[in-house]
């Protein structure tokens, strides 16, 4: 219980910190933030509508602390301001459309990467010094040293352009409208394949090598040797004796991994013109669409924090030592 409260506390605190970073950053920049942000609108909009936008954005001449509370209230009530780039669409509408794409893409790719990486790690540690054991870790680590977006570019070039196996951009066929149908769904899968594979390959290595090393340590433990000696069947030994314990440390590395994967996905989405929130963030920066930048960042941060919280709570279910306070620094 204490552990769960601890993690919830961290979640709330970091959520608050992310929101505050978002609030403070534009105000840290030299000069009057409102002027910088609205400089590009000078001459395009009349002063009255600029004043209205400033008000909507919370950039008024009021004291900082009042601005801060107005900003917090705006966030809570869903009043996130209007997009500059797609004026006058409310930011929250744009976000609503792009967030599911990223969560779907990153979520699915991560789950697959964890699954494939972990099971491959179990397998190669079992068949130590086999062909796969000598090649796979090095190969995946080599891929990880390559920049995500470059791998994405190569895939796009080879499979999209040269071989024409996969579409080169967008989340689904232009002719379709989003709906619950098999045609739409299959189109989404078809378009998501290359971006998904890129993210999968980029994050596979950590899971694979991590699991392999954990397994090797666990397989050396006395209780495994004893189980082997008393004649436990190999598959039982592999999964219920060794893997079950080796898998726990994998979960703790999830916190850092998920942040990296999301970062990578921002680049991947840009390469594939994927309609997710990472691509939205990049476009917002290029359009200097500050309300959209702030909200996209906030949502990406929140998504990562929530994923972390879920894993932390899961971890405390799986490893009772954490709950009872045997290990203090959980994450």
């Amino acid at each position: 219980m204490r552990f769960i409260l601890n993690r919830l506390g961290f979640f709330v605190l970091s959520l608050w910190a992310a929101i505050t970073i978002n609030f403070i950053l534009p105000r840290l920049m030299p000069g009057n933030p409102a002027d910088i942000i609205f400089a590009k609108f000078q001459g395009q909009l009349d002063p009255a509508s600029i004043a209205a936008m400033k008000k909507a954005f919370g950039l008024t001449d009021k004291p900082m602390i009042i601005q801060y509370f107005e900003y917090l209230r705006g966030l809570l009530t869903g009043n996130w301001g209007l997009s500059f780039g797609y004026y006058p669409t409310p930011v929250i509408d744009i976000i609503k459309h792009s967030l599911p794409w990223t969560i779907g893409l990153v979520g699915l790719a991560t789950v697959l990467a964890v699954f494939i990486g972990t099971s491959a790690g179990i397998y190669i540690s079992w068949k130590r010094q086999g062909f796969l054991d000598n090649t796979l870790p090095l190969l995946t680590m080599g891929i990880q040293a390559l920049p995500y977006f470059w791998v994405a570019l190569l895939f796009l070039f080879v499979f999209g352009f040269k071989l024409n196996w996969f579409p080169m951009n967008h989340g689904y066929d232009n002719g379709l409208t989003p709906e619950f149908s098999w045609t739409f769904f299959s189109s989404v899968l078809y378009h998501g394949f290359l971006p998904g594979i890129t993210i999968l390959l980029g994050s596979l290595s950590g899971w694979l090598v991590g699991m392999r090393n954990n397994m090797i340590n666990t397989l050396g433990e006395d209780y495994v040797v004893f189980a082997e000696a008393k004649g436990v069947s190999p598959s039982r030994l592999m999964f219920t004796y060794a893997a079950r314990n080796a898998i726990l440390p994998q979960l703790t590395s999830f916190a850092i991994a998920i942040g990296n994967v999301v970062s990578g996905s921002i680049l991947t989405e840009q390469v594939f013109s994927y309609p997710g929130i990472g691509g939205q963030l990049t476009n917002a920066v290029l359009l200097e669409d500050f309300p959209l930048i702030q909200s996209s960042f906030l949502l990406i941060a929140v998504a990562v924090l929530v994923a972390n919280l879920i894993v932390d709570l899961l971890y405390s279910r799986l490893d009772p030592r954490v709950r009872t306070g045997g290990i203090t620094n959980g994450s």
Binding site: I21, G259, I266, L281, V285, I293, A301
Partner: peptide, 13 residues
Amino acid sequence: LFLVLPGLALLIV
């Protein structure tokens, strides 16, 4: 906090 926040997104902002 800095470990958990996606670095690239923060950099972009």
